[in-house]
Write a protein that binds this DNA or RNA. Structure first.
Length: 272
DNA sequence: CAACAGGGGACAC
DNA sequence: GTGTCCCCTGTT
């Protein structure tokens, strides 16, 4: 067990910010997180956060995953004090972290996300993990499924993937899995690319357009200048930034601001 | 029952 | 860059 006092860290906000689909609330202040082939239970009481894992696993996986080395106060300090909307959004989501997630998992997750809602995305991903992911067990004996490898998914048929509720996205996942499994596309190379090059490379994948590529860049490659524009963000921009989002001012960290806005819009519609 | 949209993208023009 | 199809599933 690792216990830390953390600023700008809120499990409910991270879970609800829509960047990860395998994190869920177990009980009040306690969440479980599945990521790549890892499993974690985590608790929070105010600023006190407890990671239920060994120090070794914490240091080599979760510290990085939750982006704990980054100082979010410096991001918040860059927000224009006169921008009422963005300040309200940032206040609402001040505990959001941009997670550093597995590249392959994010590619598949955001392929599935298109024209889809979050509840169903989660179900789709759960389905493919259970059917194609390796069954694992924590030291405490809890069973869970790892995210399926490119090879495992490439071995499926389009019909099988459709049965996982993927719909027409099944062929996107299958073709991309085949491209990666065959070595035609190298995930390791993409990891080392600049934002611009990585985005370009990702958009070459079947089923990946600009929005999905930006999500992958932001949530897996930690290119925090990536600014995914979906229907919610587009609406918010039309309403609050009629002259365009101040890209100059937030250059380098536009993705952080995108997440505050996205989360704000998401929680607003929930409470209506 | 029909219509529609939900974190888009491919493809043809 | 625009229009059309994809054709899933839950909601209204």
């Amino acid at each position: 067990m690792i216990t830390l006092e953390l600023e700008h860290f809120d499990l409910a906000q991270i879970c609800g910010s829509g960047q990860c689909f395998r994190m869920e609330k177990m009980q009040e202040n306690r969440y479980k997180v599945l990521a790549a082939d890892q499993y974690l239970e985590i608790e929070q009481q105010g600023k006190i956060v407890t990671f239920c894992c060994t120090q070794e696993v914490f240091l080599c996986f979760w510290l990085f995953y939750f982006d704990l080395d980054c100082d979010y106060q410096t991001y918040l300090d860059r927000i224009n004090p006169r921008d009422k909307y963005l300040n309200a959004a940032a206040e609402k989501g001040e505990g959001i972290r941009i997670l550093q997630q597995d590249l392959w998992e994010m590619i598949v997750s955001f392929l599935i996300s298109q024209q889809n809602n979050i509840v169903r995305i989660r179900k789709c991903i759960e389905n493919i993990c259970e059917r194609y992911g390796e069954k694992k067990r924590t030291p405490e004996g809890t069973e869970y499924y790892a995210f399926p490898t490119p090879e495992a998914l490439a071995g499926a048929t389009e019909e099988e993937l459709r049965n996982c509720n993927l719909g027409y996205r099944a062929k996107y996942v299958l073709k991309t899995a085949e491209a990666v499994a065959s070595g035609e596309v190298s995930l390791e190379r993409i990891q080392d690319m600049s934002y611009k090059k990585a985005k370009q490379e990702l958009m070459g994948l079947y089923g990946v357009g600009e929005k999905v590529a930006d999500c992958i860049c932001l949530f897996a490659l930690h290119h925090i200048d990536a600014f995914p524009v979906d229907t919610h963000i587009r609406q918010a921009l039309e309403q609050h930034y009629k002259r365009g989002f101040p890209n100059r001012r937030y250059k380098g960290i536009r993705g952080i601001m995108q997440q505050y806005i996205f989360y704000y819009e998401l929680t607003k519609t929930e409470s209506e």
